[in-house]
Design a protein around this nucleic acid. Sequence first.
DNA 1: CATTATATTCGGAATAGTTCCGATTACGAA
DNA 2: TTCGTAATCGGAACTATTCCGAATATAATG
Lengths: 131, 131
Amino acid sequence: MTKQRVIVFNTVKALGSHPTAFEIFERVRKELPGVSLSTVYRNLSILVDQGDILTVRGIGQEVHYDHNLHDHYHVQCRICGKVSDIHTDFIIPSCINPNNEEGYIIEDMLITLIGVCPECANRMKVEDEDA
Amino acid sequence: MTKQRVIVFNTVKALGSHPTAFEIFERVRKELPGVSLSTVYRNLSILVDQGDILTVRGIGQEVHYDHNLHDHYHVQCRICGKVSDIHTDFIIPSCINPNNEEGYIIEDMLITLIGVCPECANRMKVEDEDA
DNA sequence: CATTATATTCGGAATAGTTCCGATTACGAA
DNA sequence: TTCGTAATCGGAACTATTCCGAATATAATG
Ligand SMILES: [Mn+2]
Ligand SMILES: [Mn+2]
Ligand SMILES: [Zn+2]
Ligand SMILES: [Zn+2]
């Protein structure tokens, strides 16, 4: 664990809000002004491989990082791109039956709900009223 | 429907195998040698907006396109990146309860299983035996 | 048919996110 | 201290996608 890796890890935890690599970079920079973006990327990828953090994918091509290792699901706003944890009474089964006709060895399951966050929904409502 | 759009649409159907934009471009090119990549991208995005085709996302940053509009799920091989339809006795609920504490309006659900395809599993087994 | 308006195309530049690489530096073991 | 390994920095390269301006096709109108 180098100084840089510890700070990247702590920053993911501190930010909490499913930050992107660049958002993490900008924050790490405040504590470690000379850090390079490639160092942030490399350490994020090591932390993911070690199972210390998780990745979340949605619409668009940026990866979001999550310090919360508990079994939980995400929703992304299709307007502003924000990623949030989601608590719904809809239960998503977390264990996969590995039997499938295609003969794949199944290891993981990417799930992200897509929708509109309350802030964006409200902003759109106001804009409609104004028009 | 321009000539280009029809050919892009038919190519997605003809390829069948969840092709990427670039794979579609390469195939469209054979029928329409002067077509530009931007035309393929624009028409794919129009076809998606019109609901004529679907997008599939997995690991990595490329989008895959699917002509099959039926409710079905996908698995991607983490080794070779191939995307396949998956038939498993594990039932994924397709209807989402919109109630959630976060107040999101939920519109869609991205689901992709991740694993190893039979070909890659076999190749890895052979490589292990050789070593 | 000629004219105009609109939509679409092509080609390439620009952008965004990420990965890679070479030279330098930090760290630990011998 | 010396050596070897691993990590860092900085920037170039890469990949996927979007954007833009000029040219072209299409459709509607006179
Ligand atoms: Mn989370
Ligand atoms: Mn499919
Ligand atoms: Zn939003
Ligand atoms: Zn494979």
